[in-house]
Design a binder for these strands. Structure first.
Lengths: 340, 340
DNA sequence: CTGTTAGCGCGTTCAT
DNA sequence: ATGAACGCGCTAACAG
């Protein structure tokens, strides 16, 4: 049933090699024969078997993408952009969703991408062992998250600067009791929450504000988690007048919690997010914008470049993308209060 | 560098055939030898080449997933759920993002999945030709969108019933001027907007309300499109007092437009969406909930079943998932007005 | 410019 | 229970 290269060769009256050369645009085939073969192949509906082709050539024309989630806006958007760049260049994308610990472990022990991909794009931050496992594949590696690490080209943003601009914005508005909804969860070697937390502490110190541990809660990077965290913060003996959420999704959860507590934003509590989620504008969320799709596309391009010029210069270890604070309607000066 | 089956065979002092049998759990290997081989393989970090293995066996252990978008919540969520089911069963996922017309055309003419996948899950609705192309692959097919069609197992919802419940809700609240933000865009053979539109017209007729074409606008299934559509509806000589948006994302765009026009929801205008987007709850959106992740997982399971029992009964052509109207805070009776 | 010859690494007979 | 031989479909190296 499936038509093979020899079928095409026979129908066109040439050898299999010639068909192979003709269809892949390699030199050594007369234009006449080439177009003839193309016609026959099209008519027969022939497509080269990727398995056979990569077995013979060693190239797979496939990129492996590993992600911790797909459904979440950030990762879906990065993946979408990267996939477009890859497929436009003729590469297929093998997707690995490593959300659960089991899936993640299974992936890194069995390493199913071995001999199956020409490069790997990681949307998650591998720990030391995982990182070594990926390097052992012997293919170009890139990532859109975390800091620089050996063997990877990392396209990212300056998390500290971004978080600082958010918190500083709140300080400048006159807030003193500033809470944070962090995203620290699990031993995922995720430097993002660490950096953003450090930035938060730094700005507070800079402004001479004493850090109150009761004003920090974990939101797990989800809407529900953000809601829980905000609820927790509101239960503090002296609740915050402003909150920095480490992601827009958690910020939106916070907004929901505030609404349920009949608190007004920004009159009673100011909220700043991080990401500039597609829907941040809908709820009027002030946030730190980062080029999410841009990072996915750029990382993909970096990989393709390494694939095209294997012996070129060392690729840059880190590419920094721009960020900016977007002011909307969830932040304002604190409401004047009685002495306390 | 890459370790092959013969390397393992040599190290274990057996033949390649035995290694192959042992590692795949086929009968004909003594337990002693089997565990010994497993140990050697693990120590050498051996993984069978998928290319070679599928070339020899004909099975690829790979599922092709084609989608019109990935970044959008609906598709990302379906993909996420499906991927988890596939990978838990030992299958890899090849992802094709066919958002642009070129990408789509390229995919269906070249059909790069040929001989590369054991099954295909479609998150888009193929037209007749595309559908035939997929069938020509000779592998099980499933889809999470659109109506029943030959060769596919379609896991979906009753779009008409869902849309009817939304519009009927508005009618029951007493609204008479009910607008719709539709999602009809392009020649994508997308029956969803058609079905939802028919339901809208049906309920209006049922309630004895005359249809006013000025109250329907296209929102292109995006937030921005929804905002534009709502703005358009508000410009009508007699604007609607309630709006049914065919997706939550468009509904959120509508909410944004209303806020910009200083109109209050639901006091001035009621809004109903469709999907129960992750963030619908945050903005208090009344909507028709559908089990999005559930559909992805179920479709994946249907495919795996066909793969496991190739000669079983014909799989069901269509599986219907439950929907329900979720009442939140964006709908209310129309405000009493002066005579008009 | 084109055909012939060898594998790529594995699964699958068929012997033993 | 195990091994040898063959072929999956294609690309690469070598002839001509």
């Amino acid at each position: 049933m499936p038509v093979s290269i020899t079928d095409v060769a026979r129908a066109a009256g040439v050898s299999a090699s010639t068909v192979s050369r003709a269809l892949r645009g390699r030199p050594g085939v007369s234009d006449e024969v080439r177009t003839q073969i193309a016609a026959v192949a099209a008519q027969l509906g022939y497509t080269a078997s990727r398995s056979a082709s990569s077995l013979a050539s060693g190239r797979t024309y496939t990129i492996g993408v590993v992600a911790p989630y797909i459904g979440r806006w950030f990762f879906g958007t990065v993946l979408d952009a990267a996939e477009q760049v890859f497929s436009a260049a003729g590469y297929d994308v093998l997707l690995y969703n490593l959300g659960s610990a089991e899936a993640r472990k299974r992936f890194f022990t069995k390493l199913p991408v071995r001999k199956r991909v020409d490069a790997v794009l990681s949307l998650l931050i591998p720990d030391e062992d995982e990182s070594a496992a990926l390097r052992s594949l012997g293919v170009p590696l890139a990532s859109t998250v975390g800091g620089a690490r050996p063997g990877f080209t990392v396209v990212g943003i300056d998390d500290r600067a971004g978080a600082e601009s958010a918190v500083r914005h709140l300080v400048n508005l006159g807030h003193r009791r500033i809470g944070m909804i962090s995203g620290a969860s699990g031993p995922l070697h995720w430097t993002t929450p660490v950096d953003r937390r450090a930035a938060y502490l730094h700005v507070l110190a800079e402004a001479g504000i004493e850090h109150d541990p009761a004003l920090v809660a974990d939101g797990d990077y989800t809407v529900d988690g953000g809601e829980r965290a905000m609820t927790e913060l509101l239960a503090a003996s002296r609740p915050p007048t402003a909150v920095f959420a480490q992601s827009d999704e958690m910020a939106m959860g916070a907004l929901r919690a505030l609404r349920r507590h009949r608190l007004r934003v920004p009159d009673d509590v100011s909220v700043v997010g991080f990401d500039d989620h597609e829907l941040a504008d809908v709820v009027g969320l002030t946030t730190v914008a980062q080029p999410v799709a841009g990072q996915g596309a750029e990382a993909a391009r970096m990989l393709l470049r390494q694939l095209d010029e294997p012996d070129a210069e060392q690729p840059p270890g880190r590419v920094e993308m721009p960020i900016r604070l977007v002011l909307r309607e969830t932040t304002a000066p604190p409401r004047p209060r009685g002495p306390q």
